[in-house]
């Protein structure tokens, strides 16, 4: 079995006249934390969306390797890609984008309920994840009653609760102060690579990227460099 959980090859994606991706090849190793860095408009979010099957590239392929076998993500229809995202991937966005009217535990449990788990069990699991992320006692709070860092940890719990093989995070600390940002990043890493899962982070924050095991730099829709942050394990690499 390949040790790469994701393999992208020759990804090209344009939006009208804008070339977001201009031929990207990338392999993501199982259990690593990969940071994708670059200026605004460099194509890093589009790359994350292609890897996660959120958008289909114009050309190129993305393959996902799991215990169940190899899946050609780019060959799947919209419905199958939706299902793959729901069952195999987790997502953390900059704003959390949690459902404001649901409580913290309901937001987390919803991810399991969508996969058919009964609500009581889903909330039990969800509560466990919240507690593991330091949010015990806050299960019944509405999202508006949580701080930015707490809300982001609810989003991390939601991304993890389904046992996602890969968690994709798009500027997960973008709206947080530096202390909270470090705290959220620690929670994100502990709950992903700390458990043998894979984390792909899009960020423009060098501190966030520095906590990952590998960094790729993007410019004008291409990967222009790759490095291993100081202190990170040098064994990660494509």
């Amino acid at each position: 079995m390949s040790s790469f959980v994701l393999e992208a090859s020759g990804l090209v994606k344009s939006f009208g006249q804008t070339h977001a991706l201009a031929g990207v090849d990338l392999r993501v190793r199982t259990g690593e934390s990969l940071a994708i860095m670059g200026a605004s408009g460099s194509g890093k979010t589009t790359l994350l969306h292609c890897l996660a099957g959120i958008v289909a590239p114009d050309t190129g392929t993305v393959a996902f390797q799991s215990g169940a076998g190899r899946v050609e993500v780019t060959a799947l229809g919209e419905r199958e890609r939706s299902r793959l995202r729901r069952e195999a991937f987790g997502f953390v966005f900059q704003q959390g984008l949690l459902i404001p009217e649901l409580t913290a535990v309901e937001n987390v449990a919803l991810a399991l309920m969508l996969n058919g788990m009964p609500r009581a069990r889903a909330e039990e699991y969800g509560g466990g994840w919240l507690a593991a992320l330091g949010l015990a006692g806050m299960e019944d709070r509405r999202i508006g009653q949580l701080s930015g860092g707490q809300a982001q940890r609810v989003a991390i719990a939601r991304a993890q609760v389904t046992g996602a093989a890969v968690v994709f995070a798009d500027e997960p600390t973008g709206a947080l102060d530096s202390a909270t940002s470090a705290e959220v990043m620690r929670a994100l890493l502990d709950s992903t690579t700390g458990q043998g899962r894979t984390l792909v982070v899009v960020t423009h924050d060098a501190d966030v990227a520095g906590r990952c095991s590998r960094i790729v730099d993007m410019r004008d829709g291409r990967i222009v460099g790759e490095r291993v942050p100081a202190g990170a394990s040098a064994e990660a690499g494509a």
């Binding site: 969306h49 996660a52 959120i54 419905r79 939706s82 299902r83 793959l84 995202r85 729901r86 069952e87 991937f89 997502f91 966005f93 704003q95 984008l97 459902i99 404001p100 991810a111 969508l114 939601r158």
Partner: peptide, 12 residues
């Protein structure tokens, strides 16, 4: 924004 993010998460 929320609907779009739920779509990304895989909610049908």
């Amino acid at each position: 924004d929320l609907s779009r993010s739920l779509g990304m998460l895989g909610m049908p």
